[in-house]
């Protein structure tokens, strides 16, 4: 069941880096508990769109954001605490990052930073998140090992477990599969399908087939603009609203 009330609203969002416009006048809703695929060629602004949502974009020098972004009813650029916002939004970057601490501590890091001290609570949380990220079985006997010593695919799942550890309402994944093998990719895709029953997911990908497999709806970005958003079948079907969408998804450019 997909509810019609938007979970995330981008409204006339424009992002500039100095003189360069990275996103122009984007208006886009993300619905509760859907996977929204965001596709487009490199440099079309996909990553910037995600990074506005947890406000890490403003850490980049010269970045300027105008327009509004809302999660539920909250204008996120007017929230008091950026940390609170970032705990509501899970973010998985393209390259896996295991923090230089134990696997357990990697997952327990965020809860600890927000004040959770109770050992039983943390144990439970670590197990849940690692299970959700399909990593628990592989690491349950060596939780004290360094997170940085895991393989690339395992580190990416560790990153996802960490992104889930602060119980986010929205999960953003930015080309999560570029550094990992196809088998692991398929496992994570299964994970995402399960997760969407509880979480709203934004999936940036440059693999159009991945969006096709996973996304309920898809959005197509091209040269900083939103060309089209709609049900995935529509974008990938015979007659998307815009010709450029058709040309992109059928591999004519990009």
């Amino acid at each position: 069941m997909v509810s019609e009330r938007p979970k995330v609203q981008f409204d006339k969002l424009t992002v500039r880096f100095g003189d360069h416009v990275a996103l122009r006048d984007i208006t886009l809703d993300v619905r509760h508990n859907e996977i929204l695929g965001i596709i487009g060629p490199a440099g079309s602004g996909k990553t910037s769109l995600l990074r506005t949502l947890n406000r890490t974009l403003e850490l980049t020098r010269g970045a300027r954001v105008t327009g509004t972004v809302r999660i539920d009813a909250d204008d996120i650029y007017r929230l008091g605490s950026v940390s609170d916002l970032r705990r509501r939004v899970g973010m998985v970057a393209p390259l896996p990052v295991g923090l230089p601490m134990s696997i357990y501590d990697n997952v327990a890091f965020a809860p600890r930073m927000s004040g959770v001290r109770d050992k039983t609570t943390l144990d439970g949380l670590v197990e849940t998140c690692l299970t959700q990220a399909a990593l628990w079985d592989e690491v349950k006997d060596r939780l004290a090992d360094l997170g940085t010593k895991l393989s690339g695919g395992q580190q990416q799942r560790l990153t996802i477990a960490r992104a889930l550890s602060h119980e986010p309402e929205v999960l953003c994944l930015d080309e999560f599969s570029i550094a990992i093998d196809p088998v692991t990719t398929m496992r994570i895709e299964e994970v995402l399908k399960e997760l969407k029953s509880t979480i709203t997911i934004l999936l940036v990908t440059n693999l159009v087939q991945q969006a096709r497999r996973l996304a309920d709806r898809s959005a197509f970005l091209l040269t900083s603009e939103l060309v089209e958003v709609g049900p995935t079948e529509q974008l990938f079907g015979r007659e998307p609203k815009d010709r450029r969408t058709f040309e992109y998804v059928h591999g004519m450019f990009g």
Binding site: A110, T159, A163
Partner: peptide, 9 residues
């Protein structure tokens, strides 16, 4: 960046 992403200050 990984720390900021999970809400660490």
């Amino acid at each position: 960046e990984a720390c900021w992403n999970v809400g660490a200050t």
